[in-house]
Design a protein around this nucleic acid. Structure first.
Length: 487
RNA sequence: GGCCCUUUGGUCAAGUGGUUAAGACAUCGCCCUUUCACGGCGGUAACAGGGGUUCGAGUCCCCUAAGGGUCACCA
């Protein structure tokens, strides 16, 4: 294997859902690897047994699959550096921690959680930052051995230097320096025997030969601790690539309550995976060109770490909607029929020509979930609000409707061929004969056919979809309603 | 609060000392037109503030402010 191979990893913890910030990380990690002919590894970080969620790992596989990201190594497909499920690696971490203890870079801690809690509250009262007081650092060898023999629960803590500074280079943010004395003696091994994320990520990234650690910027402040760990082991740290956060409108981390933040929600409400990917990759990354539409495979070629910005970006649904609409419009009619069908079926109680409906709505749909409301009038309509006949621009009003509708009804009756073109000709020739604008004919017909002020498509398209019989029925109904109205 | 990071229009953003400071979404207006939408054309709108450095600063430095992140036996 090539020594300088680029290897990145997506290391989610299986909490049940993948939100878009998380998905964006996965995307960037994938793209950093692919743009450099590298490998993309999936590792599941399930060291917190308390947070285990049934089926969550499948959600992750499913999400990656829908998005079109495929991993080169992972729990489901194996690889040379497995296992890829951290819980299955459990026993591998302790020896590393013990080695650190030997080298005086870590120590056993037997402090009870209650004691820590008291310390924490005390610190809060004094308004100072809580930091473990190293109570157990000074235990004698014998004392430690005695407690160990007595099976007292313990954790292992990393011993931080208490002076000096630690600096590391980040590909996005540049050099970042921390005073060592702000670093707490963090826990490496928990009392249940599992490693903490803080320990496991370092061990695993090293063992799995991860070259670029790509992750959210919330890890910036804990990275010096990891660097110290790499140093303690004498390992070369990876290249760090911290990503600016995606925040919700108004600022703040994306959370469950901030709307359509979960990828699965987006898909269920009719956003296209490729649109979401395209939108999300542009949140914090720029190609430097004017191009704004990218397929995944294009991104695999042009993605560059240099294009990643430093400032957090807002998750703005307006632009996502627009972009989704663009993707919908770019589809062929057949493709659109395929993705719109479930939504049409959901809305329609009677059978109409789906292709005609799709041709009509394709340019008007931004998100698939809009479809049912858009076409529900095709089922049936309730009593028409006669005020809808009033329209200044087409010079229509109730009286004109009363005049025009019966004429159109008779014309339709005479038609043998009832399709888009013949309907259009019938309307326009009628208008011509009457010496009025097309709009004056189309307006009342469209209202009579739909009962709505705004419809996806005009009188011709709607009549065509409804068919001769239904169109006639609706116009008759409208006429009957108008008879009793004095305007 | 300590530490770290960020700051170009409402939003996404280009910009790497010299530009009339791009482009996109949104918004507004006009055109097209069979309502709406699509499409076309055009408009409004930004370098957080203050000091430096420099012939010259959105670009470099410092301070202030605002926002965010982080301070767990979560990741």
């Amino acid at each position: 294997m090539c020594q300088n191979e680029v290897r990145t990893r997506y290391a989610p913890s299986p909490t049940g859902f993948v939100h878009i910030g998380n998905l964006r990380s996965a995307l960037y990690e994938y793209l950093v690897a692919k743009a450099n002919n590298g490998k993309f590894i999936l590792r599941i970080e399930d060291t917190d047994q308390k947070r285990y969620v049934e089926g969550a790992v499948n959600v992750i596989y499913e999400t990656l699959k829908i998005v079109g990201i495929s991993h080169d190594e992972g729990p489901d497909i194996g690889g040379d550096y497995g296992p890829y499920m951290q819980s299955e690696r459990k026993d591998l971490y302790l020896p590393y921690a013990e080695k650190l203890i030997e080298n005086k870079k870590a120590y056993y801690c037997f402090c009870k959680e209650e004691r820590l809690e008291d310390l924490r509250q005390e610190a809060e009262k004094k308004k100072i930052q809580f930091k473990y007081d190293r109570h157990c650092l000074h235990l004698s060898e014998e004392e430690i051995q005695r407690k160990l023999n007595a099976k007292e629960p313990y954790v292992i803590r990393q011993l931080m230097p208490d002076s000096g500074k630690t600096t590391y280079n980040d590909s996005v943010y540049g050099d970042i320096t921390f005073d060592n004395d702000v670093l707490e003696d963090q826990i490496l091994i928990k009392s249940d025997g599992f490693p903490t994320y803080n320990f496991a990520n370092v061990i695993d990234d090293h063992l799995m030969k991860i070259s670029h650690v790509v992750r959210g910027s919330e890890y910036i402040t804990s990275t010096p601790k990891y660097v110290l760990l790499y140093n303690a082991f004498g390992w070369e740290p990876p290249i760090f690539v911290h990503l600016p956060l995606v925040v919700k409108q108004g600022g703040g981390k994306i959370s469950k309550r901030s709307g359509d933040a979960y990828f699965s929600d987006l898909i269920e409400s009719g956003y296209l995976p490729e649109a979401v990917v395209n939108f999300i990759v542009l949140l914090g990354w720029s190609s430097g060109t004017e191009q704004e539409f990218f397929t995944l495979s294009e991104l695999e070629k042009v993605f560059d770490i240099k294009g990643i910005g430093k400032s957090p970006s807002t998750y703005d649904t307006d632009k996502l909607r627009w972009m989704n609409g663009e993707y919908i419009r770019k589809k062929t009619l057949d493709e659109f029929i395929a993705i719109a069908s479930p939504w049409i079926d959901k809305a329609l109680q009677r059978s109409y020509d789906k292709a005609k409906i799709c041709a009509m709505i394709q340019k008007r749909v931004e998100v698939l979930s809009e479809i049912p409301d858009m076409i529900s009038f095709l089922n049936d309509i309730s009593t028409i609000d006669v005020n809808l006949y009033d329209n200044v621009k087409s010079k229509c009003n109730i009286n004109e409707a009363k005049r025009i509708l019966p004429i159109i009804r008779d014309k339709i009756m005479e038609m043998d061929v009832f399709n888009h073109d013949s309907i259009y000709i019938m309307f326009t020739s009628t208008a011509e004969k009457l010496g009025v604008k097309n709009g004056l004919v189309m307006w009342p017909v469209r209202i009579a056919l739909s009962g709505m002020l705004v419809t996806p498509g005009g009188a011709v398209e709607i009549a065509d979809i409804l068919g001769k019989d239904e169109a006639l029925r609706r116009i008759d109904l409208a006429i009957a309603q108008l008879v009793d109205i004095d305007a």
